[in-house]
């Protein structure tokens, strides 16, 4: 557990311990014996599509059930109901392809998320305004959700996920579908959040992750191939120390995905 003290408030950045985590949907094994330690800052989870990133995030966010001792947040085992209840108020989670109610106004949406996240009714308006400011959507507060663009919806989702000021923020593909300007804005917001919180983001866009993350985890075929400094990723991929070239293949795959997107 690490701590910081921005804006006069003590923020505790949770640590996450993942030990021998495997997960499968029926017969399909998605995660295979992953072990990792996450200790504050912005952590990027990268990997090709279908590599198991979202499943790993779901296990950390407590939306997927894990076995005892496989995932601990600040030492609390999330396999148990009590453990999940204790850590959930610290978590802000934005799943990929999240749901919103189109007929609600932006302000009401964030305030509702604040209310369901445990903020007192009287404080929800203030919390909503603060969250909207932090992500740059304060000018959209009076609009209905159905009128927002894809990028605006994405930022609204981040505002909802962080409105209760969680110490652990988990964002699944937060920059997907955003225009370059909005992506830059979201990147800056993530960097800013990472100063006071533990932020875990999943992305298949390596350059996004490299620019904002303090450390990086590469997942491919359900296995953790790399955890460390993003700047050293290319070097590690080029000179596999364990005698395999899986990391290089994953690394190349990531850039192949990116190239394909650019071609489109």
């Amino acid at each position: 557990m690490t701590s910081d003290k921005p804006e006069g408030r003590t923020i505790v950045r949770p640590s996450i311990q993942i030990k021998d985590l495997s997960y499968s949907y029926g017969r399909q094994q998605v995660l295979n014996s992953i072990t990792a330690n996450i200790t504050g800052g912005v952590i990027g989870l990268v990997g090709p599509n279908g590599s198991g990133k979202s499943t790993l995030l779901g296990c950390i966010a407590t939306t997927l059930r894990v076995s005892p001792s496989q995932v601990k947040i600040d030492g609390i085992d999330v396999a148990h109901r009590d453990g999940r209840s204790r850590v959930r108020e610290r978590i802000g989670y934005l799943p990929q392809g999240f749901d919103l109610l189109g007929s609600m106004k932006v302000h009401n949406t964030i305030a509702y998320a604040a209310w369901t996240s445990g903020i007192r009714s009287d404080d929800c308006d203030g919390a909503a305004a603060e969250a909207a400011n932090s992500i740059g959507i304060e000018h959209l507060m009076a609009k209905r959700v159905r009128t927002l663009s894809g990028g605006q919806r994405q930022r609204l989702g981040i505002a909802c996920a962080t409105v209760h000021n969680p110490s652990l923020v988990i964002l699944d593909e937060p920059a997907v579908g955003l225009d370059p300007g909005t992506r830059l804005q979201v990147r800056n917001s993530i960097v800013s959040m990472g100063k006071a919180r533990t932020v875990v983001i999943a992305s298949h866009m390596v350059e996004d992750v490299v620019r904002v993350c303090d450390s990086i985890m590469v997942v491919a075929d359900g296995e953790l191939l790399y955890q460390g400094d993003p700047d050293s990723l290319a070097t590690a991929a080029a000179s596999p120390s364990d005698g395999t070239s899986d990391l290089l293949a994953a690394y190349q795959q990531l850039f192949a995905d990116r190239t394909a997107q650019l071609d489109v």
């Binding site: 108020e89 989670y93 799943p95 749901d99 919103l100 509702y112 998320a113 369901t116």
Partner: peptide, 15 residues
């Protein structure tokens, strides 16, 4: 729209 596992208005992690 509001109460499934992918809702951010009534999030899974909400209390």
């Amino acid at each position: 729209r509001l109460a499934t596992a992918r809702s951010v208005v009534f999030p899974v992690t909400g209390t």
